[in-house]
Structures are given as structure tokens and as C-alpha cells.
Design a protein around this nucleic acid. Sequence first.
DNA 1: ATGAAAGCGCTAACAA
DNA 2: TTGTTAGCGCTTTCAT
Lengths: 343, 343
Amino acid sequence: MSEPAGKPTLRDVAREAGVHPGTASRALNPETASKVNPVTAKRVRKAAKALGYRPNPIARSLRTSRTHTIGMLIPDLTNPMFPPLVRGVDQVLSERGYTLLLADTDNSPQREERLYTALRDRQVDGLVIGTALLQHPLLRRIVADGLPLVLVNRRSDEHVTPAVVGDEASGIQQSVTHLTSLGHRRIAYLAGPRTTSTGLGRLAAYHQALATGGLEQAAGLAVECGAWTEEAGAVGMRRLLDGGAEFTAVMAGNDMLALGCYDVLSERGLSCPDDLSLVGFNDMPFIDKFTPPLTTVHIPNADIGAEAATMLLDAVEAGRVTPTKVVTLPVEFVVRGSTGPVR
Amino acid sequence: MSEPAGKPTLRDVAREAGVHPGTASRALNPETASKVNPVTAKRVRKAAKALGYRPNPIARSLRTSRTHTIGMLIPDLTNPMFPPLVRGVDQVLSERGYTLLLADTDNSPQREERLYTALRDRQVDGLVIGTALLQHPLLRRIVADGLPLVLVNRRSDEHVTPAVVGDEASGIQQSVTHLTSLGHRRIAYLAGPRTTSTGLGRLAAYHQALATGGLEQAAGLAVECGAWTEEAGAVGMRRLLDGGAEFTAVMAGNDMLALGCYDVLSERGLSCPDDLSLVGFNDMPFIDKFTPPLTTVHIPNADIGAEAATMLLDAVEAGRVTPTKVVTLPVEFVVRGSTGPVR
DNA sequence: ATGAAAGCGCTAACAA
DNA sequence: TTGTTAGCGCTTTCAT
């Protein structure tokens, strides 16, 4: 009796079950199992199990040009905003039998090009993009290549592209409302780069919220930072303080920028929230352990990732491009120690 | 003139260059390019470029049973210790033309089994394991499956397995030396789970360092925590404080445990470093921004990831199992505000 | 309901 | 040096 050496293939299963490989294939594939005699099917499944047969996804992919593989592009995994996003995506993918190809662009457009090409050549079935800027040439390429894609936490200007985002406007509005309820009337804003949809969108929401509240919109009350980093936040905060505008509260475009504010506050001997109230955005991990704990807006990043993955796979499996809709998930405003009554 | 529709294949390139597909293959593959006439090779490359030819990695993999793909298993991407590790791995992989298949086990052994099987079936060329426990049945399976693997930040008991780790003993020794230089003689230790090599190893190093320094090793001075989490750290810290042993400093098995200590300190109205000095381990992101900033041991996680990936690829490309050596990278002790003179 | 046969795109042993 | 051939393991159309 000669068991074939090496991993058993479909041929081995077929031989063991006494059927043709084609039949074995049909029997083992849930999609086509109905087209085969139930008792034969059972025999095939038994043989497969007996031999410890595992289908070879590579061979299947070559034949079907589907890989059950999804690529994800992110700018920097060590930015604490991304791990929950990746995790949410990965969770859904693995549940549905897909595998995640993760690529970290390190914020470099060239690297991003290369990585995208690599992912495309590997025939990923779709892409989750966490790197999108408002103007992003790569998106056009991806669409042209016919690959389904979903943006997370970003939207695109130029192309109508499906995206999953948090409800930023609501978060900003809640921040302003909270501050005014504490008596603040002059609220400064530290904006993120206007090259990102979040940078622009949150700034617009800030202006909108001020208008709604009948608050003053003095020049010099809103300052743009060059990047979503602590350093850029510190620079912006200094510009704000040195700009001469009066204010009793600062809203930062995200928690990283708020971190920069903390640095400047201690550098200037200012106390928070006594001298100045501070609000962040994102609720990144451990930001609640800072002194004082940061009042901020919680973005459900894991949910966003999961939703994006679900949208993408639904489209992939329906065999069509993702619907160009933007899904907005609710955010949660969380009050902590960095905001207090004006005094 | 009929350009073939769809993506150009090797046949198209061959036809364009007026050679046989086999020749085109040899010409385009750096390994075999020497076996073909330089001028023919150039013609083929020109044709490939003209057509925008991109080799199909799936077809190549089916033929060669190499995928240029590496799997990585981690327990929880949202634990800040892992992103730098993943990033280090990813960086090296993409540089060398490999792609990372990331799988987050969510600390579940069942999920881990499933994910491993999925990765193996996808014929990853090797594995980076960040989930290893001292006793870890899965490792045996992987070795039995003949897959090259490297452990990161963990070692294994049962199997001789290649690993890349930080120099933990040195880190612990430096912590103890630092504390004694500040006058501390009674130093408590909050150990991580003994199921992990780091939990056990750091504890042993602590005992060793105390012995070397001629310091007292009272019972109740070392307490084991059930997990590497903030909550477990808090529980351990309470046990320590309520245990009756006297001490002026606490060393935590890692920064997450130290975070739990912060919670208990404020809960008990204790001030750090005035009432108690505290030392962590890992130097996780933002731990320097806490109040007080944590004195800790910096583990070069990105380097560890990069080194692991390099070892793995070297082995993969040499066509043999990874050498069962353990690479130890130096750590850096960083003094911050959580340690001070005993008083 | 099953068998036969072709082929996804590539590489590699063998021949010329 | 180049061409020929076969086949990696699977799915799927076409017959039967």
C-alpha cells in the first residue's frame, strides 16, 4: 500500500474516494456541493478528512484569480490610532476566511507606491486605505486598476470613494457645547493639516459650532499645524499663545496635537484646567492616564475597521466595486480632567 | 494589430521579443539571467517594459512552492509593545520583496491554531512568532510542519527555537544598580506571569541582581501578577503593599504592570518618588509623559523585529531551517522622574 | 450526477 | 544559448 508522499492533493482524495478529481472538487466546495450526489459527497469528505487534505489556496487562486486576501495601507503602525483600526479589519477578515496583507508606508508616498504595486501584483481582492489625503493620486490608480477599496478615517476629494469615518462634526460640536457650558466664550483651535479630510473637516466643524453658539471667531484663534504630531502641536500651541489672541480654552485637532499642548503648558508654567481648558480628539490609548486626564472625543476605530472590512468583503463577494457611500459611525464625547470652568 | 487584452503575461512578452516563453522567463529572472544571451535579455526586458509586464506571483508560487510571504502571529496589536515589533519586521520584509501576513490571535489559543493553519495553508515561507509561551504546543507543530520560524521577545522551553530578545538580565541589573545607588536596600518586584519566558527570566534576573548586590531577599518582596496588564499590576501592587513586607522601591516586570502601580499609588495617596521609587520595563510609547515620567528599560523592539526578519529570510533563502540560536540585543536603561533617593 | 479535458501563468529539466 | 515539454493543484466547461 503506497500512500503518496507529501501533502495530499485533490487527486489523492479523489483516488481514495474512487471518483474523478473534478467530482472531488465539486463535492468539497460548498458552492457546488449541491451538484453532486449526497452520498458521493459524503464519501469524498470522508476521504479528505482521512488523508488530512487541505486545499492549496495558491492553485485555487491561479485558477479563479481570487486570493481571499485583502491589503491594508497605513502610514505608521506606531501611531496609536492605527492598531485598533487594523485589529478591527483583521478580526472581520479572519472570521470570513480572508487574510490581511499589512503594509506600513512610513508616511512616504514613494514607499506607498511600491507597496501598493506589490499588493496589487499579489492580486489582493481589495484594499483598505488608511493613508488617504484629500488629494491622493494613488486612489485614481487603484480605481483605474479596478480594485475595490474602502477608506478608513479619511475621505477623498477628487474621487467618489467609499469610506468609513467617525462623526467628526458631532464630536467637535459636543466639545464646543461642553466648553460653553463651562462658561468659555473664547475657544481657540489647533487644526491638523488641511491636506487631510479630518484636518479640514474638523476645522470646518469648529467654525460651524462657534457660529451656532454665537461665539466670537477672532483671527488668530485658529492655527494650523503642519502634521498630526506632538511636535507640530507644540509649535502650533506656541503660535497660539504668542499670537496675542485671547482665549480660555483650546481644542486640539487630535490627541497627538494635544500632547504637544501639554508640553508647552508645562514649559510656560501654565496649569490645566485652571489657566486653560484643553480638549483633544481621538481618545487614544492611555490618554486618560495623563495629568490631567484629557477630555476628548472617542472614535470607535475598531468598529470603523470592522465596518470597512465588512463593506469591502460584501462588495468583493458580490463581484462588484464597492458602493461609493460614506458610512459615519457615532463618536462619544468623554469628559475628563483637562476641562474646567472658566475663571 | 491586436494587442492581447487583459494583463500581459510572459507569453505576450516572449512573443513581443520574438523568443520562447522559457527564454523570457530566464531573461527576466535575476537568478537565471546569466544563462541567456545579454542582447536577447535586453530585448526581453525592453519588451516587458513596453507591455507593462508584471509577473504573476501566484503562478510563480504554484510552480516554485515559494510565496515570498511571511506570517506573523501576535497576541494583541493594541498592546503598545507590538507595533514597533511588527513595523521592524515589515520594514525588512518589504525591502527584500516579501509581504507580511499579519494575524492577531487576541490572546486566544484556539484562534491562534486557526490562524496558524490558515497561514500554513497559504504556504508562508516562514513565521515570526510573538505569542510564544514557555510551554507552547503550537511550536512543536510548526517545527513538525517544517516551517522556518523565529520567536521575538520570547524564548521557548521545550524546543530549541531561534529567537531574538532584548538583554533582559542586563536591564534588570541596571535597574537594581540604579536603585541601590540611590540608597534603596529593600527593593520589591512585581513579576509577570511565569508562563512567559520574560516573566520567569526577569524574575530570575532580579534575584540574581539582589544577590550580587548583597541585598535582602525577604519573602513577600516578589509577587507574581496573572497577566501583563495594568489591572493585574494593580492587583499585584495591592498585594505587595498589604503583604507587610517593607520596601522603598518597586520594580515592575513591565510598563503595563507599572501603570497599575500608578493607579494604586494614587488610590492610596502615595507619592512617587517621594514615598516610593518605581521602575518599569519596556519604555513603551508615551510612558515618558506620565506623571512622574517612568524610569524604565528601553527594549529596541523595532530592531528586534528587523533582526528576526533578517534571520528568518536568510534561512528561508538558504533553503534551510533557521539556525537555533538566540540573538540578544542590548537594552538601554533610562532614568526619569519615578525614581529618587530613599528617604 | 459524473468523467474528460483544458488551462490559469509560470519555471525547470531536458534536448537540440 | 535557446526551444520543447511537462506540470505545480485546482476549477470549470463540455460531454456523457
